[in-house]
Design a protein around this nucleic acid. Structure first.
Lengths: 210, 210, 210, 210
DNA sequence: AATGAATGAGGGTTCATTCAT
DNA sequence: CATGAATGAACCCTCATTCAT
């Protein structure tokens, strides 16, 4: 038991260090971008020695990947495809919950989201592909919902893919603004506005009014 | 006069060279991003010597800036604030013309637009600020239009800034998709779709239908 | 007495550990060379922690030195200058015994001998000097024997130092081949061949034939 | 013509620089071994900047390889398999010429030969394999000659491979001594001694005396 | 105007060694 | 005794920029 305790403590310390490095690196990546953020700066900010960095991460790429991967994961678990089964909550509510969850996460770490919204990586970097894949995934979710919506007469006729790109773009644009304004905001209220705008753009008017 | 002629010829040649470098650099920036695009590659592609590059541009930053500046300028001249004076063309038409002009320019150089939509620069770089300034400028144009629209009862009540960010985002999102799809498209048709989506998001329904 | 016993046990364990480290290190040095063999690999192979290594050896150099020193010592005790006193065994037999003893040791640890025959150390490293000193020592032994042989008319006239270098070289060359062939061999037989070649090179023919 | 002249001059200068780097590097490799010789030291000794080094060689490995490759090539062209056709010069003379040529080359660059005789590379390094391959090649030449000699009754019965290793070893040993003694020597005389020793080790006595 | 050899600051990474636990 | 996290000097290499020709 004593051993377990000591080990647990050591592991906790390790995790703590790892997090410190991640945080320092994340801030730098946001401030300067991937390339301009140097290991030298990261370790200075994290208050560790050069070699220590490499005890926790295999490379500069690896930290960056770790940061992005975590963020994308957190986003992915918050974004749930709309369930149209009977008995499921109304679609508008589901959308609202999705956006709210993302906004809440955004509030907890604005820098991180900014990193994803405007990462600025060499287009051929593996990590850029990862981020793109995430957004493409979300776009597909939206496009599929639109197609379904059209089939049941809820959504006006339109090019599902293009419109999905517009919807996602509008949300990204809105979020970007919220982050960069550095002001606090009411999650529920903002989520409503983001969704309201997007929905009006596609919903058939009669239904919206009813 | 003879001198003037020779000078003109020399200047024409100079401009030609400059353009070749710009073109080579632009492609590389798009393909690899700013950092990964090296002077070595640029001059190889442009077919010039190392030193020659610096006869035309002071630095790597300078080429990039030149490229962005040109592109932004081309965009700016195509984006004209909506004129609401009496006798002016209907706002919807003006919008359509704005978007159409931008889309046409986009068709003439997809890579360039992609560079602006997703430049991937150190966030603190002066050029990044320049690009941001451009988008902020457009956003303000939109926000102002929205405010006016609200004041005359055409636009539903909303947060003008946030909504402007959403509108701009939706257009950027749509354009990004169009570029990356590598397909050709009908400018007028697409412009209508982009505007339609954005307008529905803000216009008061009664008016839209009329 | 109890204390002594415990102490003895402790010391035995210590020696055991030391030997494990030496063995792991030796293999690595042979496989990868001195520089490419890292402490990390050594301790992994020895199954000990980083700090533990430094409880047994002061530095990476020190392990290497230990290994070489041991090997050289083992070789030195097996190489005995030829005794030409009356009543001593015949010189040819003494040589044969010397070589046989070395070959036997070689069979017990090929890797170790290879490390000495082709160590691959910075030429200015103290350990490189140590190995060189050993070979120089052997060379001197041979040269002295040659000089003596010449003085008693057994050995043809020749440059003793150069010839000694050739003799030593021939034995090293032969041994190197034997090690790298990875085949087993008959010690006595091979020893005869090694000596036969070297002796023919220097012995006066009449005597050899008689 | 003017262009050609200027180009020729430029190329001459380039070659000169390349050679300066090679020389500086070679000396350092000999003094300190491959690993301990740092690029920093090489460029300091060559009197050039860091980047300049990489204008002439792609890597540290590449300089080393260049040096070894050149040396091995020079050795290879000097070592010619013994021609036993009728009308060819007597084998002993051919051997003498081979060894003399090598010794002469050795005199022109002792350090270089030392680098090959005692390179000290990680056993798994590609360059180590290259050097080994060279020696193996020479050994095979010798072994083949021995086999032929045995078949025509000139050479006593022996294990051709092992004996070849001994012969090569004896020559290497002799050369190593000559290099490290830093004294000058008479090529023809030394060549005779090297060959004499080796031949006596294998030739059937009757024939040798005749 | 054009060239390309030369520069050197700075990049990411490794690894022998130390020391608090 | 044993541990392994922490250290930082030193490594090889890249690349934007300069300058003599």
């Amino acid at each position: 038991m004593a051993v377990t305790k000591a080990e647990a403590k050591a592991e906790a310390k390790r995790d703590q260090r790892r997090r410190e490095i991640l945080d320092a690196a994340k801030d730098l990546f946001v401030e300067r971008g991937f390339h301009s953020a140097s290991i030298s700066e990261i370790i200075k900010r994290a208050g560790i020695a050069r070699g220590t960095f490499y005890l926790y991460f295999n490379s500069k790429d690896a930290v960056f990947e770790s940061i992005l991967e975590l963020a994308i994961h957190e986003l992915e678990v918050r974004i749930i495809g709309v369930d149209v089964e009977e008995g499921a909550p109304p679609p508008a509510l589901q959308l609202h919950q999705n956006v709210s969850r993302v906004l809440e996460y955004m509030l907890s770490d604005r820098a991180l989201i900014l990193l994803i919204l405007a990462h600025g990586l060499p287009p051929d970097a593996p990590m850029a592909l990862r981020v793109d894949a995430f957004f493409t995934h979300v776009e597909e979710l939206i496009a599929r919902s639109l197609s379904y919506g059209m089939s049941v007469g809820l959504v006006r006729k339109c090019d599902a893919e293009l419109t999905a790109a517009q919807i996602l773009g509008s949300v990204r644009g809105g979020m970007r603004r919220l982050i960069q304004s550095h002001e606090n905001f009411e999650v529920t209220e903002v989520a409503s506005q983001l969704i309201d705008f997007a929905l009006r753009g596609v919903i058939i008017v009669d239904r919206l009014q009813s």
